[in-house]
Design a protein around this nucleic acid. Sequence first.
DNA 1: GTACGTGCAAATGATTTGCGTTAAG
DNA 2: CTTAACGCAAATCATTTGCACGTAC
Lengths: 130, 130
Amino acid sequence: MKHADIKYTNQRVEILDFLGDFQGHPTVEDVYEGVRQKLTRISKATVYNNLKFLAEKGLIKEVNVKGVSRFESNLMPHHHTICIKCGEIKDYESEQLSDLTMEVAENIDDFTIRSADVNFLGVCKKCMEE
Amino acid sequence: MKHADIKYTNQRVEILDFLGDFQGHPTVEDVYEGVRQKLTRISKATVYNNLKFLAEKGLIKEVNVKGVSRFESNLMPHHHTICIKCGEIKDYESEQLSDLTMEVAENIDDFTIRSADVNFLGVCKKCMEE
DNA sequence: GTACGTGCAAATGATTTGCGTTAAG
DNA sequence: CTTAACGCAAATCATTTGCACGTAC
């Protein structure tokens, strides 16, 4: 599902590839370090601009944790568990919850829905044992 | 429901009062400007520290919009609609969704739930007309 | 009396912007 | 060709921190 109105520059292609391969929810810094392996001269501003751009175009998703942006290429409806101690994010899926969320979203008055984010905040197992 | 382990300093009391009266979801800056009307010498760092502290203690709630913290004293279960154009936040309530969210939350393995946030992102009526 | 809170200013960290140059379509 | 994107460095903005002093309990 390529979008006709998007310029596929080397930088964008590499960023999308990196996100596709990455297991998890990388920060801008992570993406920058990763993409730099191939495009050694890419600037961090370009990574910032493109992640923002791609998220606006709907090709990737942004997740904000404690004021820091993270990204993922998984566009399927799903939720996140976020550890408030270590910041770890994991995908969590409940079809029933996804369905109800979208149903509710589509019926909100005076509001054109773009996405519905469900984040479970708590403490992960590892942090709990400490 | 006062907590025995919290020192109710003037600053904290004024911050809580301000949040209780405020209609909406003020930023740290909003709270600072508001509280400063009464406590003219309060520092912004104190506002930051206390908002964080009070949120950790569960006396207020934090909502993060585009990487910026906002706060509210409404502790009842509810959701938010957030306009991605102007940033406006409004409370939205669906008892059915609150119930299902909490039910799902309590059954997540290896995760001690603290809260479940549901945010609807989209474009508000005003921004849509432009 | 003591530990915790405060005010201030400086530091940090994430993100954005201005501008001259480069490349995608 | 022409417009959007890039790289770089500087700027901005939210938030945190170190430290000397003050105050709630």
